[in-house]
Design a protein around this nucleic acid. Structure first.
Lengths: 158, 158
DNA sequence: AGATAAACGTTCGTCGCACTAACGAGGGTA
DNA sequence: TACCCTCGTTAGTGCGACGAACGTTTATCT
């Protein structure tokens, strides 16, 4: 008869890790679609923001600031440099490093991507009040700050 | 000098989709590690819960209830059946279907996995008060409910 | 000084999850 | 009958997170 609407079990619906996984998937799709429509990528935005906020940096710096792996950073910078958004010069003070610098074109690109991402966040948080949205960001901020990748040698009580 | 602790830019730290992605990654690692230590998997638990809560079901039912794709469901059920946690019998009423039934061994397995997962959630939400934990679950619940995979033919306003 | 360890940029590869495509077998309905 | 949908199954794609290793350069230790 009523074929049971096949609802997700309550016990599953209440599991934080599960909710996080599903919500994160939705969020990545919302952001990814918008950025892909302009040939852009999550990671491009992160790098541009890091450069805009803290000035020129080495690739390793950018990697640590954005959380993008060094290995993946290479391709990102290749693309950003290919479109003239950044310059990549060898560091005269340390010849292992490259100095990555934001160009005016990169600044404009950043503004554009920022608009897209902001719009995606709006759609993501649409069912929440702005107060709830702030709460969510605050709670997630606490979690990410607490569960940071631990450096070897860092104090690790417990 | 102070080489700048290489903090993540504030503009990045406030982006919901980014926070979700990072937190979800941490959460999946916490859960995954514990389950892997017992040769188990996220999906095993979800299936067992669905069977325990709503009784025997077809594979397609389980797929819809748990959000696991039919394609991935096959392997999961193979493993669960291999360890005697479920039985998989052809449905006499509809010979396309298999009827999946939870066995007593599956019930015990469920209890064990439930303990592991509960423990992982505790560690995940450790930095939050229990009230904050409930808030987080509630907010994520709203989001996942709102952004459901849309069925073809379903009303899709805006 | 020389030896050793570390950090940098880079290439390549792995693992897991979400997801699609296609197919044969069966079932519902005109 | 013909048509279309569902079911279980196999295979494969795309992407994000992550690790290994290498040559080069710099920092550290004795």
């Amino acid at each position: 008869m009523s074929p049971t609407p096949e609802a997700t079990p309550a016990r599953l619906r209440a599991i934080p890790s599960r909710l996080l996984a599903r919500t994160a998937t939705v969020a990545e799709r919302l952001v990814g679609e918008r950025l892909a429509a302009e040939g852009a990528h999550k990671w491009h935005f992160a790098v541009l923001v890091a450069l805009d906020e803290a000035g020129p940096a080495s690739q390793a710096d950018l990697s640590r600031r954005t959380g993008i792996y060094r290995s993946d950073m290479v391709a990102v910078l290749n693309q950003l440099s290919g479109t003239g958004c950044i310059r990549r010069d060898p560091d005269p003070a340390d010849r292992r490093r490259n100095v990555i610098t934001l160009t005016p074109a990169g600044q404009r690109r950043l503004d554009r991507l920022d608009a897209l991402i902001t719009d995606a966040q709006r759609e993501l948080l649409a069912p929440l009040t702005s107060e709830q949205g702030r709460q969510l960001v605050s709670l997630l901020g606490i979690l990410t700050e607490h569960h940071q990748p631990k450096h070897p040698g860092a104090a690790d009580e417990e």
